[in-house]
């Protein structure tokens, strides 16, 4: 049996929003054999700056290499290694769930419990919007799966360091 010390890590990356910057980051992960579990990227309030959040896995040595390699990219302004700081993270999922006469009420109960929203309704389906951390999303997906999930689209995690108290 191979024993690995692999853990999951969340990394924040602030980059200059120039053509090809995503390719550089994603290419670095694939070229050096690092995992990407999720990646999100969007502009920040500062013009020309984009923030990415990447969830990866590996041992501590790999994580330290990833952080250093990312810092080495010319367009990367700052890397946040969330293994060393408290952070908040959220992910949004759109879930299209089967909603027939006998299950509609149950779906709505789940929506209520998870503070989700119904964003689209059709004769046989509800599409739900749910936001939360990994645990919450896993829980609602598990429950809805028993009713019947037709499709799911998740954004992947976005994360920010907690402000200092």
């Amino acid at each position: 049996m191979i024993v690995t010390n692999d853990k999951r890590y969340t990394i924040g990356i602030l980059v200059q929003n120039v053509p090809g910057v995503l390719a550089r980051i994603v290419g670095l992960f694939s070229g050096r054999g690092y995992n990407i579990e999720t990646v999100t990227a969007a502009e920040t309030n500062e013009k020309g700056l984009t923030r990415l959040t990447i969830v990866t896995s590996g041992d501590e040595r790999v994580l330290s290499q990833i952080v250093k390699q990312l810092n080495k990219l010319v367009n990367v302004i700052k890397v946040f290694d969330f293994s060393e700081t408290e952070f908040v993270d959220r992910e949004m999922a759109l879930i299209k769930v089967r909603a027939e006469q006998q299950t509609r009420a149950e779906v709505l109960r789940i929506v209520d419990i998870f503070r989700a929203k119904v964003v689209d309704v059709s004769p046989h389906f509800y599409t739900l919007e749910v936001t939360g951390n990994e645990g919450k999303l896993a829980a609602i997906v598990e429950l809805l799966d028993q009713i019947g999930i037709a499709e799911i689209a998740r954004t992947g995690k976005a994360a920010l360091a907690r402000s200092k108290k």
Partner: peptide, 16 residues
Amino acid sequence: IMGITRPCTKHSYLVR
């Protein structure tokens, strides 16, 4: 060529 050489250059530019 930017795509091809991305992993073996320190940095690269496509001047548009």
